[in-house]
Design a protein around this nucleic acid. Structure first.
Lengths: 342, 342
DNA sequence: ACAGTGTACGAAATCGGTTACATATTGTTT
DNA sequence: AAACAATATGTAACCGATTTCGTACACTGT
């Protein structure tokens, strides 16, 4: 089909061998200034770009990474993906993008593809950090950075302080005077959902507050799950005065249902999220949340992987903790339960 | 570093030549049933996956596409990216992801990288459909599908009916009785912004309504632009009774500022968006918008590109129009200007 | 018995780069 | 003047697959 111009074409045209052209392009070995100039001119004239594929085959480095996220439509991940791609471009790397849909089987599929395309490394926001996944990663044998995957694993990992996010929001609710605090959680069985639940439980326990069975439900991490949880809570005989949601999407879905059903937020009920996504601020009332700095995640993940790729770090797996910060907005306030009961 | 298992390893282990293994894997040429079984077993035992890189070099097909979007954080594009990636995976293709940040220079950079990595095709949501870009695409010489790029171009393209989206929202506002309708537009100089502006202008003209200079401003396609426009409009001596925004992000930013400044939406002022993103529905008031079906975009774009890649279509550039539909929600209502003036 | 056809498999070239090794010229040191 | 290092370039093998061409055998029909 399309015949590309090769290094040998350039060599012939410049009257040198392909070796010399290669040396010129990679700036290694000696090449005379005049020769270099001749090559440069020919390269420009022909708009020559060396084939990354051929390079990869020989050097055994594809300069391409696999980026696997559970849900690119989640603003946290789309923002992170954007930043990762920017950082990588600067380093001369590209990213092959995968959306696993938070599904274990698809995660395995993506890993298989990642291997066959010869990815030099994997940036993996895995939800199902099952043993099989870890085994598969080890078998593939390229550097891996796990993102938001709290389980102990033999790879570098980047995540917020375990359980800190919902701990912060729950404690905030407690400090406001709430006692009946419910939790609307993410996909059961995933490490990150577990961590968020624990944050809630820890804060409750620390304050000596009881956790009611029917105040703790887990669905998923998207707004649809939030709507379902909202429907559930609003139908309870005894509603909580505050709900700690596993992330902002859940909180937004929840908010919508509650407002739809005539509840006032935060007067009747307070809501918190996690991630501090843009839309949480755009809504009314704006969402109290926890900053999960996707840029920081991207930076650390890329840095860690690059160090592994360059071999400038070869030690034990590292854990990078991204600091978080509570952002109080309009969706939380002191409880007014007494009046309602009267 | 990591020595991969090659087709020759498999061949040796199975007691055949690499040719036969290749024939077995690609299901072309004859291979004895028993031999096939032996090979299958060895392949499984060694967990062998042929190197896509070596395949690409020889066959001159990378089975990898470049996907370039202006802003992956825009829910329309992140949703589209998700769906595109899913469709491609099924076809045995991968996508290298680029976020151009709606910047011309970066678009050029991305195209250069796309060429050197040997992308078989390009899915390109270009904002700056400048001549240079088109020339560069033609020079690269691989199939291209342009997305949301309205200018006439020598490639297949996928987009909504030109100017239809804002035409629908503006007409909706007019039918509600609004006469003082402003427009908050997207990045000036881009084809899509031009198209959105035209939709507004057409509807206004059709209804015989005058367009005031100070009611027409263009900033960008993100929520920050919406906030700026909102600040501008809310400071006007004579405020419009409705604002037609170029997309939902702009509308959401606008909404936030207006509510912040004490305006009631839709009582004091009506707001419309375009794209029907999830968050537009989650906010209050929920946003009147126009459905821009990202799944349909993804489907048509992938289909068109695949046909080009397979050579099953080789004719003139095609234009795929995705139908749209107005979704009326709480952010629009009849104007109540008379009372306010009194 | 022989040509023709379908089946089964291998040797070797090839894709477009990189690189180990060899060669040649020039400059510098002893 | 001989020895050595630095500079400048080329030859050819190689990365891991695919593919052309060729060989060999087993049928089948005449």
């Amino acid at each position: 089909m399309k015949k590309s111009v090769t290094i040998r074409d350039i060599a012939r045209e410049a009257g040198v061998s392909s070796t010399t052209v290669s040396r010129y392009l990679n700036q290694n070995g000696y090449v005379d200034a005049q020769t270099a100039e001749r090559i440069r001119a020919v390269v420009e004239q022909f708009n020559y770009r060396p084939s990354r594929i051929a390079q990869s085959l020989k050097t055994r480095e594809s300069h391409n990474l696999a980026l696997i996220v559970p849900d690119i439509q989640n603003p946290f991940y789309s923002s992170m993906a954007n930043k990762i791609q920017n950082l990588l471009l600067r380093e001369g790397y590209t990213a092959t993008f995968f959306d696993s849909g938070a599904d274990f089987q698809r995660e395995m599929t993506c890993l298989g593809v990642a291997e066959s395309i010869g990815a030099d490394g994997i940036l993996f926001a895995s939800v199902s950090s099952r043993r099989i996944i870890l085994n598969e990663l080890e078998r593939i044998g390229v550097p891996v950075v796990m993102i938001n995957s709290y389980d102990a694993c033999p790879f570098d990992s980047v995540h917020g302080v375990r359980s800190e996010s919902t701990y912060l929001t729950t404690r905030h609710l407690i400090e406001l005077g709430h006692r009946e605090i419910a939790f609307a959680g993410g996909t059961p069985g995933t490490a990150i959902a577990q961590s968020r639940k624990n944050g809630y439980l820890n804060a409750m326990q620390e304050a000596g507050l009881p956790v009611r069975r029917d105040y703790l439900i887990e669905m998923g991490f998207d707004s649809e799950s939030g709507r379902k949880c909202g429907t559930y809570f609003s139908a309870l005989f005894q509603m909580p005065t505050a709900i700690c949601c596993a992330n902002d999407l859940v909180a937004l879905g929840m908010l919508q249902v509650l407002i739809e059903r005539g509840f006032q937020v935060p007067q009747d009920i307070s809501i918190t999220g996690v991630d501090n996504i843009e839309y949480g601020d755009l809504c009314s009332p704006p969402l109290t949340s926890v900053i999960n700095d996707s840029g920081e995640f991207a930076k650390m993940a890329v840095k860690a992987l690059m160090e592994r790729l360059r071999g400038s770090y070869t030690g034990a797996p590292r854990e990078f903790l991204i600091p978080r910060r509570l952002v109080v907005r309009g969706s939380t306030a002191q409880p007014q339960r007494k009046e309602q009961e009267a």
